[in-house]
Computed example of a mutant assay.
Amino acid sequence: MIKIRLKGRLGNQLFIYAFARCLAEKYEDHVVIYDRKDEEDSIWHSHLDGYKLHTSVGFSSDKKKFMQMDLYQKLLFVFDRFCIKALNPVQKKRFQEWKLKYYTQHGLLLCMDGVFNLPDRIPKSLYCDGYFQSAELFDCIRDKLLLELQPKEEHRQTEKDFIGQIESTNSVCLTIRLGDYINNTTHQVCTKKYYLDAMQKMRELHPDCIFFAFSDEVEKLKTILGDDGSIIYDSGTSKDYMSLDIMSKCKHFIISNSSFSWWAQYLSDNKDKVVIAPSKWYADAVPCDIMQDDWILLDC
């Protein structure tokens, strides 16, 4: 059995599900995700319940049973956490190459950042932990993911009307993460200038484009970009997975360094989409393979 621990908010959880789904497909095995529903955490929760997920991926809320490891695995897990904090980026890359082979032989696949090649064979029991933030890890099943990552419920009438506006125009999804990114030394990358430059670039490519703005703090966003009618703002009242589905209906995308923002463009079925993204994903030197080759990258 393959086991993976869920972490992060919706965007990160979708990366973990996509990787789990790829593992199930590659190794023809059942994958179980620990959804942490037995943990008393008022801030964190599973966001995946609203999707039509494949039966090859199941869920468990039994932490005690799920997190069982032998002594050597526990030692490797602690050693890995120490190395992540102690090594510099160059050392981390070398360490990553070594550990993926060695750890996997002992039933662990630990990867916080960066892309890697899956081994041809894995042990009968494998515990995975990481964010798996690269399309290269699951692009081989993208068509299946586009079908499975559809909301179970129908959109409300107000949401359907908003989707109608998006689909009837040359729409651009403009996603701006505020909230916990403000003054964050790792994640605060995108400035107001980045978004204005990205909007100008999109206007050059598509003069008739209309911007649809989404944010975790819509009212604050209006004070930043203005409310003169040139931008159509989302209401901010939709459930996160419903909002993501609405965003994916746009024809083009200006994204922030947010996994939620990333999934909006990935779930789009527009083959001619233009995606503008920041030139770096983190403010510090964290290994990252989340960018895609066909994006337009702007300095930030």
Results as ranks from 00 to 15, higher is better:
231 I>G: 04
244 L>P: 00
75 L>Q: 08
142 R>A: 12
201 K>V: 10
82 F>Q: 03
244 L>A: 08
80 D>C: 09
264 A>L: 05
181 Y>D: 00
277 A>E: 03
219 E>Y: 12
294 D>F: 11
64 K>G: 14
55 T>K: 15
231 I>L: 10
57 V>T: 03
173 C>W: 01
88 N>V: 05
94 R>Y: 09
225 L>M: 11
206 H>E: 15
210 I>P: 02
77 F>H: 04
288 C>V: 08
28 E>N: 15
100 L>V: 09
180 D>P: 03
80 D>M: 08
123 P>V: 04
259 S>R: 00
222 K>W: 08
208 D>F: 04
88 N>D: 13
153 E>L: 12
263 W>L: 06
102 Y>M: 14
36 R>F: 11
153 E>K: 12
255 I>G: 02
245 D>R: 05
53 L>S: 09
108 L>K: 07
35 D>S: 13
18 A>W: 00
127 Y>T: 02
208 D>W: 04
33 I>M: 13
67 M>R: 07
97 E>W: 04
298 L>R: 02
170 N>A: 07
230 S>A: 13
63 K>R: 15
68 Q>I: 12
52 K>W: 07
43 I>W: 14
81 R>V: 07
205 L>F: 11
133 Q>C: 07
123 P>G: 06
104 T>I: 07
127 Y>A: 01
46 S>L: 11
287 P>C: 07
135 A>F: 09
221 L>H: 00
270 N>I: 04
230 S>F: 08
182 I>A: 01
127 Y>N: 00
141 I>C: 02
271 K>V: 12
264 A>Y: 00
45 H>S: 14
291 M>S: 14
293 D>R: 15
137 L>Y: 03
151 P>E: 01
179 G>Y: 09
41 D>W: 10
20 A>S: 14
232 I>G: 06
174 L>D: 00
8 G>T: 02
242 M>W: 03
39 E>V: 15
198 A>T: 04
45 H>I: 08
23 L>S: 08
21 R>F: 05
263 W>V: 01
17 Y>F: 05
300 C>M: 09
2 I>W: 05
257 N>A: 08
111 C>G: 01
96 Q>A: 04
117 N>A: 14
215 S>L: 03
79 F>Q: 13
248 S>D: 00
146 L>E: 02
45 H>Q: 15
244 L>M: 11
26 K>T: 06
40 E>H: 15
266 Y>H: 05
231 I>T: 10
150 Q>R: 12
220 K>A: 15
258 S>R: 01
186 T>V: 14
172 V>I: 09
153 E>D: 14
274 V>R: 08
232 I>F: 06
137 L>I: 06
105 Q>E: 14
153 E>T: 10
49 D>Q: 12
166 I>F: 01
52 K>F: 07
167 E>M: 05
206 H>M: 12
118 L>H: 08
294 D>P: 06
165 Q>V: 02
159 E>D: 07
110 L>R: 05
240 D>A: 14
55 T>V: 12
75 L>F: 07
106 H>R: 13
163 I>F: 00
172 V>R: 00
14 L>R: 01
101 K>F: 15
79 F>E: 14
81 R>A: 12
28 E>F: 11
153 E>V: 10
191 T>C: 04
175 T>A: 05
28 E>G: 13
232 I>M: 11
158 T>V: 15
70 D>Q: 06
141 I>Q: 03
